[in-house]
Amino acid sequence: MKKLAAVISTTLLVASASANAQFYLGAKAGVTWLDDFCTTGACDEDSWALGSFLGYEITDAVAIEAGLDALGETTGAGYKDAGMSAYTLAPRFSFALNEDLDLFAKIGGAHVKYGNDEDGALLGAIGLNYSIIPSIDIQAELQHFNGISIETTSFDANTFTLGFRSKFGGSSEPTPEPVEEVLVEETVVEEVVVVTPVVKTFETKVVDSGSFELNSSELKPASKQKLEELVVFMNEYPQANVEVVGYTDTSGAASYNQKLSEKRAQSVANALEAEGIDASRITVSGQGESNPIASNDTHEGRVQNRRVEITVPAFEYEEK
């Protein structure tokens, strides 16, 4: 009995270290066989096995388990068809193989009764445990009772059982891991105002032939007032440039018309410069008879074709 007392003392010492746990209850059934039991021919060392057990789960890996095992009825050691039973107590150690399957082992002690005799024995077990749902497991277990002494016979007992266990009394919520406080440095982001450029232009202005002296490139003084709106625009938007292009009809020689278109365009450019528009912002050209906007076969068409077009190309500026 001293070996059983030592095992029980060690088991209780392990149990006293528990802080948080849950209980489980289980049952099992299988077969029993004995080693070194039969010394004569009139002997039977194989039988059935039934068992129940109660456990106290300290952690996912360690539990304390007590059990009652019925090891069937055998013949030997002076008994015929005598029942054998064992009370067990042992720590149970589990090793996860995957999320649902565990390998477990037990090393503890047992108090074995056979007929009218009893003895203490060392207990060892190994098995597999599979979780069906969080609270229900099934298990297969191989159990060994070592060094049982009945009268003058010393033998070992073995069981192989299939069973289940049900957990209760514990919280299904996992123990929260300690949260390390992290100091977060606040970064102040300066807001950047994005200014979207605006596209600006000026409606093309046409200076017709009536704005010039007859057969001349000289711009009439009264006609210079037509440029006032453009001058105001050019002063308001210094990034704006202007293109001045002269045209004629097909009357007369083409070379004469080319020069006349250039001179009339330059006359308009001079008027803009006189109003303070820098010459670098003005592009001047003459197209002569090209690009008519009406028929040169009629008087009215020829009047329309004799013109100077003033165009401000589109430009971008930022609104303030």
Rank of each mutant, 00 (worst) to 15 (best):
K259Q: 15
Q258Y: 13
V268L: 02
K263P: 08
A274V: 12
G276V: 12
T283V: 13
I282K: 00
A253T: 14
S267E: 06
A294T: 07
G288K: 00
S295I: 11
E289R: 02
V284N: 05
L260H: 09
N291T: 13
A274R: 05
L272I: 04
G252M: 04
E262P: 06
E273Y: 14
S261W: 07
I277W: 06
G252Q: 04
K259H: 09
A294G: 08
A265Y: 01
R281A: 02
R264V: 14
A254I: 15
I277T: 08
K263D: 11
L260K: 08
G252R: 07
A265H: 03
I277Q: 00
R264S: 06
L272S: 02
K259E: 14
Q287H: 12
A269R: 07
Q258W: 10
S280L: 04
E275K: 14
E275H: 07
Q266T: 15
Q266E: 15
Q258N: 15
E262T: 15
P292G: 01
E273F: 08
G252H: 05
K263V: 10
E262K: 10
L272M: 04
D278I: 13
S280Y: 14
A279G: 04
I277M: 01
T283G: 05
S255L: 07
A269L: 06
N270V: 14
R281N: 00
G286C: 04
S267L: 11
I282S: 00
A271D: 05
Q258E: 08
I282E: 01
Q287N: 10
L272P: 01
E289I: 12
A271E: 02
Y256P: 04
Y256C: 05
D278C: 08
A271Y: 06
S280G: 02
P292L: 04
G252P: 07
I293K: 03
Q287Y: 15
R281C: 00
A254H: 08
Y256D: 08
N257F: 06
A265W: 02
A269V: 15
S255K: 01
S285E: 11
A253S: 15
S290P: 08
I277R: 03
Q287I: 08
E273V: 14
L260C: 12
N270P: 03
Q266K: 15
K263N: 15
Y256G: 11
Q266V: 10
Q258P: 07
Q258F: 10
E275A: 05
S261F: 09
R264D: 03
E275W: 11
A254S: 14
P292C: 03
G286L: 04
S285I: 13
E273S: 07
Y256V: 13
Q287K: 12
E273L: 09
E275I: 11
G252D: 04
K259P: 06
